[in-house]
Every structure is written in C-alpha cells, then in structure tokens.
Simulated assay, not measured.
Amino acid sequence: MTDNHPSIQAPDAIAMLRLSAIGDVCHTVPVLRALQDRWPETAITWVIGRLEASLVGDIDGVEFISFDKKAGLGAYRALRHSLARRRFDALLHMQVALRASAASLLIPAHRRIGFDRERARDYQWLFTRERIPPAPRAHVMDGLLAFAAELDADISRPRWDIPVPDTDEAFARRHIPEGRPTLLISPCSSQRARNFRDWRAERYARVIEHAAREHGMATLITGGPTERERAMAAAIEEEAECPVTSLVGETSLKQLFALIRRATAVLCPDSGPAHMGTAAGTPVIGLYASSNPDRTGPYFSRQWCVNRYPEALLAETGKTVEEVRWGTRVRNPEVMDRIEVEDVVEKLDGVVSGEW
C-alpha cells in the first residue's frame, strides 16, 4: 500500500478480479458485500471463473463477467470485448496467479490494488500500483477483506447472503426435511499433485454410525462427478453399518449450498464445502493435518476443526508452525491418519450439544 494514497471519494465503478477457487470465492463475497454497504450507488463488476459464477453470479446489483480458463486465449478475447471502452476507478486484483494477472491487464483502472509484496506471488506485484498492508500470518479471508478496507469499507462484520433459488431450496428440502438432523459429508478435497487431504473411508463410516446411534442423524455424502469421488462414497457406504445417502455427482453448486444451509453440520477436509458452510452459517467440522486451519480453516468454525497440523509439521520438518513460511503444507501421503475417529466424534458431539 502506498503511504499516502488519495482520500476516498465515492467511486463510480469498481472491478473485482477473483477467478477461483470455490472456497476463495466464498471468502470474496464479504468483500463484495462490504463494498455494497459502503458505496451503494457504485457500479461493481466481478470478473470470476465460470464454475464459481454458478454459485454467486445471481447476487443482485453486481455485473458478473465469467472467465472460462478452459477457453484458453478465447477467454482473454471475450474479457477484452466485454470491457471495451470501459474504465474503473479501482481494480481489486485479488488472485495471485499469472493467468489472473494477465486478465488484469484487460481491466482499465485508475487504482490497481494488489497484495503486499510478501503475498504477491507469481509476480503479481508487477501488475498493480498499490498494495494492501502486510499481514504475515493472516487467515486467507482476512487478507481479502483488506481490499475492501482499502476503499474505506467496514469489514468488521462479514456477511454473505448468497441467494438460493426456490427450485434449489425445494431440492434440498426433499433430501433434508424440516426437523431431520443431518450430517453432510464432503469427503474429498480437490485433486492436485501431492495434495494429501482425504481421510479414510472406514473412519468416516465410524463417525456416521456414531451420529446415527447417539444423535439420530441421517447422513448425506456429496461431491463432484469424478471416479475418485464416486469410489470414496461407495467405500463409505459399504463400510457404514447404517443407511447413508450419496448425492455424489448429482448436485449443482447451488443445490449443494442449499443442502449445506439445511444440514446440522458439515464434515470435510480443507476444501470448498468447508467455506460454503461458513457462508451458509452451518457449523463445519474441518479435518486438518496437511494444512493450517488458522490460515485456510472455515472462518467461523475453527473451534470445531480437528487440528493435527502442528504435530504433523513437526514430525515432517522438525519445525514448529512459527518457524516455517505461512502456508507451508505437509506433503506426506499418510498425514491424515493422524486424525482419529474419536477426535471427530468429540467435535460432532460439541456441535450437536449446542455449544455452537
């Protein structure tokens, strides 16, 4: 951030650039809401990923421009066409990726605000003129909210208010009727190289059995249409000695969000549904061993996270959380085995007892 940036006046137009992923887009919605609350007459344009737009792209009063990374150069041509002869008072460049920075060049803006130098990886600092203040060990969402603060918005009370169409609410109601306590499990994280976040199917099954026996809870398993996610759901169903309903590959993002809103609790590793749970106001029991929940955990549910990251990090690197770069991950295929069934059951019991 510059030491003496211009005094804030009501902007005519603001552009936000955050393409992906689902969790980070959920973190970005409170930025949008803070700007709307502070500058209700300002036109806001959000350049966003195609899939991510299916979750939040119907928020009123915002222009969403979908950027389809699978379209290659065509995505940039489409963005340039959409923004021809446009100019913004400020661009909030909130994604550290060369793809996003290349897209930022097509967004004309008087102020170009990016991350501080420490967080401006992939040369993002070359594409901006102002920077948010450094925050060496902040949660990801706090880092994004700092962009709204740069435009004089109040970030003290994050809100989401993501719309849910009646048809999607009806879908969720069919699967989670009023009054039925339900545990929603999204067992798989995104598929990335050396990204070891998935827990064992048999351990999910033991939690499901406890939820049914002790709390009378039904269980829904959700996920995408990949073979890996279908196989995980099938393994959990086979292991569990009580009924389980799988909706893997059968929901849109809106339908998933509607289900999460109606669920008693969400159980998942570090993944998009954890942050959808936060946006929906549903307690999230997060499973964290390879990544740090203080950085990427469900924002309002970190007390419900099972956190084995410090011990896993120490075993893998010989260093404490304070001694490594913020965001360091544990790249051990067996790291999630540090989370025991009893750890998760204890958190579930706390949520159900009303401590939330």
Rank of each mutant, 00 (worst) to 15 (best):
Ala315Cys: 11
Ala218Pro: 06
Ala135Cys: 09
Gly143Pro: 07
Leu92Asn: 06
Met217Phe: 08
Ser66Asp: 14
Glu316His: 15
His275Leu: 01
Asp294Glu: 14
Arg206Gln: 15
Leu92His: 08
Arg200Lys: 14
Asp294Ala: 14
Val335Tyr: 06
Asn332Val: 12
Leu183Thr: 05
Ser291Thr: 15
Gly318Asn: 12
Gln255Trp: 03
Tyr204Thr: 00
His215Thr: 07
Thr264Arg: 12
Arg173Met: 10
Ala53Lys: 13
Glu130Val: 02
Pro134Asp: 11
Ala103Phe: 11
Val341Gln: 09
Asp122Ala: 14
Cys305His: 02
Ala13Lys: 15
Phe257Glu: 01
Arg18His: 00
Asp270Pro: 06
Asp154Met: 01
Pro108Gln: 10
Arg308Thr: 07
Arg261His: 06
Glu52Ala: 14
Glu52Trp: 13
Thr45Phe: 05
Gln303Pro: 04
Ile208Ser: 00
Arg129Tyr: 10
Leu247Tyr: 06
Gly224Met: 05
Ile208Arg: 02
Arg50Met: 00
Ile48Glu: 11
Val164Phe: 02
Arg308Phe: 02
Thr128Val: 15
Thr278Cys: 09
Ala84Met: 11
Arg213Trp: 12
Pro225Phe: 06
Met16Leu: 15
Val96Ser: 13
His110Gln: 15
Glu241Tyr: 02
Pro158Tyr: 01
Ser156Tyr: 05
Arg80Cys: 09
Leu19Gln: 03
Glu209Leu: 07
Ala146Cys: 05
Ala84Gly: 09
Leu253Ala: 00
Gly74Pro: 10
Leu144Tyr: 12
Ala263Phe: 02
Glu322Gln: 14
Thr226Lys: 12
